[in-house]
Design a protein around this nucleic acid. Structure first.
Lengths: 336, 336
DNA sequence: TATCTTGACGAAAACGATTTAGTAAATTAC
DNA sequence: GTAATTTACTAAATCGTTTTCGTCAAGATA
């Protein structure tokens, strides 16, 4: 590898001058700058990130913490999309990303320790469980942090408008004449609470009473638990005419149950999902759902994080709005 | 941050001794080792990865290169699964992973340059296009490399048994009485070629002639192109009775087309996918498909890569075998 | 007793960059 | 013409480790 010294020799200037020329210091004459830059190119020079980091304490590396007991989020399309856009945005801003984990090389290491070990300049956290002690430790540390879909005081966060999304879906069902609307929601996280609030608001506005058994709990992204919940709803004496599912993917579990009972979507039962992932547009019938702009969520979180790393920036809650996607999975319902 | 110096002061020994004690050199007395380790723990010491790297040239970081024009592979469930298992295996072996890209911070940088910049100890490559000049540059460099689903001479590779998979699926269809079997395959990559070979072998064994129009090209993971290809097949004067799809996900495109024509799977037409991702087990009817062991592919590639980084290891082609998953998407076919 | 080993540790030089505090020459000010 | 300032550069310290040689006592050997 060619180093700054090689360039300095080749140009007949000191290493200090090379460094400054490369980093755009004003005190270097234009000719020298040009000479140095050209030589650097000729010698195929790449700065050594480790040496630079050691001196500057800037790693140009941001950590990504996707905590999810089950599958670390990577195989969850919504999170994959976020990860992908985080990656892209980070790269265009000159940052690489590192997955933060807590067991490197067999030895237990807290998330914070991992960040310090790798000198992450900041971290994007998307987590199911923001009460996790290690997550809290990280959040409370000096390391700049941006959280997704959860807000801490004095920290920037990017949140999807969960309340609005659930409200709009529920309103739509009500609008279409449904009065027996069930909501299979995910684990009771903050996100879920917001969605439930949105759902309830819609029900209240349309003067619909929702019996407790219509509010079923399943797990996000888990087709099996959702299928069970669906079965339970269909077994009720007075089953719902419409069901809101936790997310598009897990809806497949519900769909399976519905189809196996010989029921038709949307003629016998109306459904909607959440997320607006690719899958939903491709399903037959096309799923009515709420699109979460994963791309913008990812980009915004990196933007905010980099701002807080580089300059001063005030903590801010950024709401990324979604969009109603109408499909063919809801029919107009007229009470017999 | 506490450094080795802090420990040395606290223990009254030199930094050199601390380093040696921490790294298990034999020349340090057991008592000193114990003292140093305890103090390190007390002071919550974390070695500075950058400083260590600078000196040792070992970053304990492996690069991951998933090239895919369309979506960098991250949202492709099969690749997500591989990525996830690569990540996990790397972590248990004490490595972090870095995504290799070629445009960091707006300035164009080759994959190889990126690797050097970040001092990656080695790289796992999974790519659609192994002829990409930058990929080739990386492959030919000194950087240890393991490739997935493609083999270079003198390099280790982990390959899925694509030929076997396609062969088994095609054989199964023939076994079930089908004689008009179409194969919608992906772009003409090496993987595709292997699958076509497997398909052809099965056809030959069963004495089936496949008209050229039954071999359709679409794009992996692209439901739209697959839907088009499906439509073209169904429009044929003599349409196939069974279709093999490029992968489980893009099959959804075919399914949509089939259902919209009022056809039933498997009564009117039999289908099978490829990959064996979650989705396939959840679809209704359950998809007959070939399971690719993404988890093992990821783990093996890291194992092989780390071996080649750390000790000497001979280049080796490792075949990861898949598994036939029978679903309900194929029916026995009796020619009228 | 004089020499050789061995064990346990330390001094100091790296690794490749950045940055502070100069310095010498050229330019400007008065 | 001298002093002050500016311009364009350099020397050297530094970041936190690792690692190569020492060193120095204590015990072993002859």
């Amino acid at each position: 590898m060619t180093t700054i010294k090689d360039i300095s020799k080749a140009c007949g200037v000191s290493p200090a001058t090379v460094s400054k020329a490369l980093n755009g210091y004003a005190e270097i004459s234009p000719e020298t700058v040009e000479l140095v830059k050209q030589t650097a190119r000729d010698l195929n020079y790449m700065p050594n990130a480790a040496a630079r980091l050691l001196k500057t304490n800037k790693s140009h590396n941001i950590g990504v913490l996707f905590v999810d007991d089950t599958m670390s989020g990577l195989t969850h399309e919504f999170f994959s999309l976020i990860l992908n856009s985080v990656k892209e945005e980070a790269e265009t801003r000159g940052y690489d990303i590192t997955f933060i984990s807590n067991n490197i090389g067999g030895q237990k290491m807290s998330f914070l320790q991992h960040c310090k070990y790798r000198n992450c300049d900041g971290v994007v956290i998307a987590s199911i469980d923001f009460q996790n002690p290690e997550v809290l430790e990280l959040v409370r540390s000096k390391v700049p942090v941006v959280t997704i879909d959860y807000s801490f005081d004095n920290l920037s966060s990017i949140v999807s408008d969960n309340q609005e999304g659930a409200y709009r879906l529920a309103s739509y069902l009500a609008e279409m004449g449904h009065r027996r609307i069930a909501f299979i929601h995910g684990e009771r996280t903050l996100v879920t609470q917001k969605r439930i609030r949105g759902f309830n608001r819609a029900m209240a506005e349309y003067g619909i009473e929702t019996p407790p058994e219509y509010m079923a709990e399943a797990r996000y992204h888990d087709a099996v638990s959702v299928r069970k919940a669906t079965a339970a709803l269909l077994d009720l004496e007075v089953p719902p005419t419409a069901i809101m599912f936790p997310d598009d993917f897990s809806f497949i579990g519900g769909q399976t149950e519905i189809l196996e009972r010989g029921l038709n979507i949307p003629n016998d039962i109306s459904v909607c999902g959440y997320d607006g992932i690719n899958l939903s547009r491709i399903l037959n019938p096309r799923l009515t759902t709420w699109y979460q702009n994963a791309d913008r969520i990812g980009k915004e979180s990196v933007r905010k994080l980099v701002e807080s790393i580089e300059g001063k920036s005030v903590a801010e809650q950024i709401m990324v709005s979604g969009e109603f996607l109408s499909g063919n999975s809801v029919r107009r319902w007229v009470e017999e």
